[in-house]
């Protein structure tokens, strides 16, 4: 089933066009990886899907169908609530771990202390962070390690119960062990959420994703099941990109 359908999606920063008409569908409860060289528009694509592009000084054109309705007709707060995003660099709020996770739920009207505590614990468990931090939930989130901070940010994005989770190179600043942690978590999450992950790391895309999209210079070159993209790519450019990195 398709949760998002992009039809001829274009994105601009000022006069510079970054996305040149992308057509693709995102399937529900699957992991979709977006790969491509730096500057190909991968991050811009994610920003568009979270309505964050405007905040970064860009604008989008074209059509997106989200859950059967026009994406741009939703209030942007609702889009952002239903489609969460995690950025490349961990951005924990300068608050305690606990308050990082209750920040958004309180905004959306959850006042009950018990309910809040339950949200915090369940999301920390999903992110595989609970064991490590349960003894002191009130310590500053800034004191966590980089990998822990990133998992906290993912947990935080989940506190608003999004349907889709967008991740922009979430592991690029992390070491192998933390990367493995996060990959396992994403595989667990895929049962309940739709995940779109932008990554530089082809091995990572191959390990965790169900579908892979290859973006080049703001165009969607090829989009298919991951296994097929990595074994029998149809487009010459896809093959070159994959082989170039491997070989």
């Amino acid at each position: 089933m398709n949760i998002l359908e992009l039809i001829s999606l274009k994105a601009y920063y000022g006069n510079k066009q970054v996305l040149h008409g992308i057509d693709m569908v995102i399937r529900k409860n699957a992991i979709t990886a977006v790969i491509g060289p730096s500057g190909c528009g991968k991050s811009t694509l994610l920003l568009t899907l979270n309505r964050m592009l405007e905040e970064c000084g860009g604008r989008a054109e074209g059509e997106i169908i989200f859950d059967g309705k026009d994406f741009f007709a939703y209030p942007k707060e609702e889009v952002r609530k239903r489609i969460g995003i995690v950025f490349q660099k961990p951005t924990p709020f300068p608050l305690s771990i606990y308050r990082n996770l209750t920040y958004a739920p309180i905004y959306y009207g959850v006042r009950d202390k018990k309910r809040l505590k339950q949200i915090v614990e369940s999301k920390l468990k999903v992110a595989g962070l609970y064991e490590e931090v349960q003894s002191d939930l009130h310590q500053s989130a800034l004191q966590l390690s980089g990998g822990q901070q990133q998992r906290l940010c993912i947990a935080r994005a989940l506190t608003v119960e999004p349907e889709i989770l967008l991740l922009d190179e979430p592991c690029s600043a992390l070491d192998i062990k933390n990367t493995a942690n996060i990959e396992q978590m994403l595989l667990r999450l895929a049962r309940d959420y739709t995940i779109v992950i932008v990554t530089h790391n082809l091995a990572q895309a191959k390990r965790i994703s169900d579908y892979t999209a290859f973006l080049l210079d703001g165009e969607l070159v090829e989009y298919d099941e991951t296994a097929k993209i990595f074994s029998r790519p149809e487009d010459q450019r896809t093959r070159e990109y994959i082989e170039g990195i491997y070989g």
Binding site: N50, M52, E55, C56, K76, E77, E78, V79, R80, K81, G84, I85, F87, T91, F93, Y103, A104, Y107, C153, R156, A157, T159, V160
Partner: peptide
């Protein structure tokens, strides 16, 4: 940005 991305005002 992270805060706005949560849909928070």
């Amino acid at each position: 940005q992270s805060s706005y991305a949560l849909g928070v005002s």
